[in-house]
Computed example of a mutant assay.
Amino acid sequence: MSIKVRDNVKDKLSMQTKTIAAFIAIVAAVALPQIFHLIGAAIGADTAIGEKYLPMHLPVIFVGLLIGAYTGSLTGLIAPLVSFALTGMPAKSMLPFMMIELFGYGFAAGIIKNIINTEEVGAVKSLVGNTIKVFLVQVSGRALRAIAILFSFHVLGNKAIKPIIITKSISAGVVGIVIQLVAIPIILYVINGRKHE
């Protein structure tokens, strides 16, 4: 694993490619939670299963790390809006905070993608590097969400969402956080390996 800014000319993707990637990621970010909610309803877990596995986060983080900050940010902002418009989820009170959090994931993923190079190293270093990337992205998105909630509560006087939700959502989503740390690095490694074949 090496830390360096990669050649931007080599990494530039067309606007069409970025738009298609954002569209696919938004569809996935809207569809995956619905699939999880259906599974939750079938097994009696209701919507809590979505809070546990964090399915909306996966496409946003993944597309940011794969394509870049523009696509990741766009996906993070739009996916919760589309989901709310079509399904009523997330709840209206949580929507702005979800948008901020997912924007943070997408943006941070795109920035970190260009700083930590894990494409031209061995398997172990690549997986470790990609895991570090995902962890840094998780911290960035959660921190941005926490700042937004604290600002809303203490400065704007919005008492609908209390600061305790910051720690509650982390503890509720531990399984989803671990899945992200395991699955995304493996998928990125496989994709990067195929690119270099």
Rank of each mutant, 00 (worst) to 15 (best):
M1R: 08
S2L: 08
S2H: 13
S2Y: 15
V5I: 07
N8S: 05
K10F: 09
D11Y: 09
K12F: 13
L13D: 13
L13W: 06
Q16G: 06
Q16N: 14
Q16E: 14
Q16L: 08
T17P: 07
T17Q: 09
T19K: 03
T19A: 14
I20P: 01
I20W: 04
A21P: 00
A22E: 02
A25N: 05
A25T: 00
V27I: 05
A29D: 08
A31R: 03
P33C: 07
Q34V: 11
Q34M: 15
F36T: 08
F36S: 06
F36Y: 15
L38M: 10
L38V: 10
I39R: 07
I39E: 07
G40M: 08
A41E: 12
A41H: 10
D46R: 15
D46F: 14
A48T: 14
G50E: 15
K52Q: 14
Y53H: 13
L54A: 01
P55I: 02
H57F: 12
L58S: 02
V60G: 00
V60F: 02
I61R: 01
I61F: 01
I61Y: 02
V63Y: 06
G64N: 04
G64S: 04
L66M: 10
L66D: 00
I67R: 01
A69T: 11
T71R: 06
T71S: 11
G72W: 01
S73A: 15
L74Y: 14
L74N: 09
I78C: 04
S83G: 06
A85F: 15
L86C: 15
T87L: 15
T87H: 15
S93D: 13
P96T: 00
F97P: 00
I100D: 02
F103V: 14
F103T: 06
F103W: 10
G104E: 01
Y105V: 00
G106P: 00
F107C: 05
F107N: 03
G110V: 07
I111V: 11
I111G: 02
I112N: 04
K113W: 00
N114P: 01
I115G: 08
I116V: 10
N117P: 04
N117Q: 09
T118H: 10
E119Y: 06
E119L: 05
E119I: 03
E120R: 14
V121E: 10
V124A: 14
K125F: 10
V128W: 07
V128G: 05
V128Q: 13
G129Y: 09
T131A: 10
I132E: 07
V134E: 00
F135P: 01
L136Y: 08
L136E: 04
V137G: 02
Q138R: 12
Q138D: 07
V139C: 11
S140F: 08
G141T: 06
R145W: 07
I149K: 10
L150D: 14
F153T: 15
F153E: 12
I161R: 09
K162I: 09
P163H: 12
I164N: 12
I166D: 05
I166N: 07
T167I: 06
S171Y: 07
A172C: 04
G173L: 03
V175T: 14
I177G: 00
V178S: 01
Q180C: 04
L181C: 05
V182F: 09
A183K: 04
I184V: 10
I186D: 05
I187S: 02
I187V: 09
I187R: 00
I187A: 03
Y189I: 08
V190N: 13
G193T: 12
H196N: 14
H196A: 10
E197P: 05
E197I: 13
